[in-house]
């Protein structure tokens, strides 16, 4: 079989750009997506290599060096972002905090994604009673106040990283179910689904190899948005003192600990909050960008 060079200018003139080239053009032409992805990759890198990057042990207390200011407020390079009320290096805690946030965001989104996708796809594909039950469950879930229920359950079971992750994972499946249900409804009647059924494909096979690949773009968008949601919720729970417990370096907890010294040392609150904002912003920009890039109506 002759090798076809897709980049041959003559061929391009005849056939136009390939779908892959068009996708690349859309991705690299989308500022929000690029900025979000770059920031997220940097933060992911920081989280993974935290032990190598952190200048100090994030748990090491030094009561002699409490509340040293950051370098830009007259501190020393020994502690570039200063130290907290127990003399722990703020930069190191911030770096390790990226691990907590990203871990919680990723695992909670994974758990809720599995639950919500299963429910949504089942509702959209089978319709009828299944759809009625799923829609009802979505309604029930939406009626429960998330922050309140999460706080109560975490308080009852005891705040730890694992409990927070599981509780958020079990609570945040609603958007997955809603979006996956609607997406499945859209593709369920397409010809390729009918064709797969006609050649005798089993239901799991139709769902896995015909439905899922065609709704995967929406799934990815929801995963990013729910990841951001979970990260914000964990920070809020930890801020309220009923999430991840000290001395774990969680950004929400750091804001909460800095709150009492806010009057004289506002940077204790500003820095971890700003990083949290940046992370969530990056994930959201990427999610919005992915939606723009993969939406069929933008493929011109």
């Amino acid at each position: 079989m002759a090798h076809i060079d897709n980049t041959d200018p003559l061929l391009q003139e005849i056939t136009g750009p390939t779908p892959g080239q068009m996708l690349r053009k859309r991705v690299f032409g989308h500022q929000g997506l690029l900025i979000g992805a770059v920031v997220l990759i940097i933060l992911l890198f920081i989280a993974i290599f935290a032990p190598l990057l952190a200048p100090h042990d994030p748990y090491a207390q030094s009561l002699m060096n409490r509340m040293e200011p950051p370098v830009f407020l007259g501190g020393t390079w020994e502690h570039p972002l200063g130290t907290d009320h127990l003399g722990r290096d703020y930069l190191s805690r911030l770096i390790y905090g990226a691990r907590v946030s990203l871990l919680i965001g990723a695992v909670a989104a994974l758990i809720s994604g599995v639950i919500g996708t299963a429910m949504g796809v089942a509702a959209g594909y089978f319709g009828g009673r299944v759809d009625m039950v799923v829609t009802f469950l979505i309604n029930v879930r939406l009626a429960m106040p998330v922050v309140l229920v999460a706080l109560a359950v975490v308080a009852i079971l005891g705040g730890s990283l694992q409990v927070v992750i599981v509780v958020l994972g079990l609570l945040l499946w609603d958007r997955f179910a809603v979006v996956m249900r609607a997406s499945t409804l859209q593709v369920r009647g397409r010809e390729y689904v009918a064709a797969a059924r006609a050649i005798g494909a089993s239901t799991p096979r139709v769902i896995l190899s015909e439905i899922m690949p065609n709704i995967a773009n929406n799934l990815i968008v929801v995963i990013t948005l729910e990841m951001a949601h979970a990260i914000l919720l964990e920070a809020a729970l930890s801020f309220l003192g009923l999430g991840v417990q000290p001395p774990t370096p969680s950004w929400g907890l750091m804001v909460s600990e800095g709150k009492n010294m806010m009057l004289f040392e506002p940077w204790l609150v500003l820095i971890p909050g700003a990083v949290l904002f940046l992370l969530v912003l990056a994930i959201n920009l990427m999610g919005d960008g992915l939606r723009d890039v993969t939406a069929p109506e933008n493929r011109s």
Binding site: K259, V269, F277, D288
Partner: peptide
């Protein structure tokens, strides 16, 4: 709107 969706409300309040 993009900033609002990413803003942790407790942090915004403290600011």
């Amino acid at each position: 709107s993009v900033a609002g969706q990413a803003m942790p409300s407790f942090w915004f309040g403290l600011i």
